[in-house]
Design a protein around this nucleic acid. Structure first.
Lengths: 220, 220
DNA sequence: GTCTATATGTAGATAGAC
DNA sequence: GTCTATCTACATATAGAC
């Protein structure tokens, strides 16, 4: 593995474990057993490293939330796919969500990219909701699609921050993120087609069980 | 006005206008035309100043969200009271919401107070929802009262942050905060008693109009 | 109570040798 | 590519005079 990639991987690890603002470029270098000067040979600055991580983040969002049309969406497995992807992105990039505004406002170029990705995501999410409406899985009034999709994105984007504010220790467990996933389902609950109550119950039970579980220290 | 109070007032003003992290103790002193040393005569440190502002915040929350029982809640004016209070707290202390985790995690004592206030607020909000249930204004399943109240608090607490992330300029307008109030109503919409549709429509129209309005530069 | 001057601490970043 | 040494910049906080 190239030094450059090792730096990105170490940065992501340390940022997630200790919080982005508590991890300096010196810490990253020390963790890898290289010098600060070497780190600055590979990256212009700390934002440059974060920018690399952001590309992974954007990539994941694009791959996981590209909407698929057709009856596939009527199946329950599609829900697991999307909700697991929500969990994954919250977990894998929790440092980013925990510090979103700091990170964005100190780097206008990154902020621009973020807004583009969010715009795409908003469109994909609305398309998905419309598709689920068409499949009679959900029943959402047309004019509520946009604001509802915005609230869903908002809850996912700030669930990590919210949970961090709720606890004296900054540590974020997988369980509290699954709680966030369960809340997303709760937000959609009033809009589920009456005949899909059983499916919703199954989904809810699944994520609520994960939310109740003590955090797995051997997560990948 | 005592110097100590002038410092608190200036700090709140500058924090809200420029963001807490962009305003140093030196800036506050300069704004008042006093020396940094003088500021530190009145306050032990910056957190100490923020702690004073927090007392105003907590006071407002306690006064505005103490639940009233009885048929008063069936009236539509009670909605305006609570929703206006939501707007006021978001606006008046927007610097705090914009930087919540930074501020809390750098001052454990403040964080403890925050959690106490939030706990109270959560209880008051749940009592209020139960009361509105009893008055047949809302129809919320018992087991959803707690999670719904949590989502409402979460959306209010992070609406400022969310809006800040959505814009390249950190400036927060009154209109976007009224949008947040409108979203709170949207979250409650599925739970409104079918016969209260007209009342909901009136409320929504009111806050959506304020949300659409260009920001008033002469706000009090 | 208020001032001037200065100390402390630290993160981010660079220069130049190897 | 990597190292050591160092610099800059700045916010927080303090000392001691008035």
């Amino acid at each position: 593995m190239k030094t450059k990639d090792r730096i990105v991987a170490a940065a992501l690890l340390l940022f997630n474990e200790q919080g982005e603002s508590n991890v300096t470029t010196n810490h990253i270098a020390a963790h890898l057993g290289i010098s600060p000067g070497n780190l600055y040979y590979h990256f212009r600055n700390k934002n440059d490293i974060i920018g690399r991580i952001f590309l992974q983040y954007a990539d994941h969002l694009r791959k996981s939330f590209t909407p698929v049309t057709g009856p596939a969406n009527a199946s329950s497995s599609v829900w697991f796919h999307y909700l697991d992807a929500v969990f994954y992105v919250m977990w894998e990039f929790r440092f980013f969500y925990a510090n979103l505004n700091d990170i964005l406002h100190r780097d206008p170029e990154l902020h621009r990219q973020y807004l583009l990705v969010q715009q795409e995501l908003a469109e994909n999410l609305q398309a998905l909701l419309r598709e689920l409406n068409a499949q009679q899985v959900l029943v959402i009034p047309d004019e509520e699609i946009a604001p509802l999709s915005e609230i869903l994105r908002m809850v996912v984007s700030f669930w990590v921050s919210y949970q961090s504010a709720q606890s004296l220790t900054p540590h974020i467990s997988q369980a509290v993120l699954y709680q966030g996933v369960a809340r997303v389902l709760l937000l959609l609950k009033p809009y589920f087609h009456p005949e899909k109550g059983l499916e919703l119950a199954t989904l809810s039970a699944h994520y609520q069980a994960l939310a109740a579980q003590p955090s797995d220290p051997f997560h990948k």
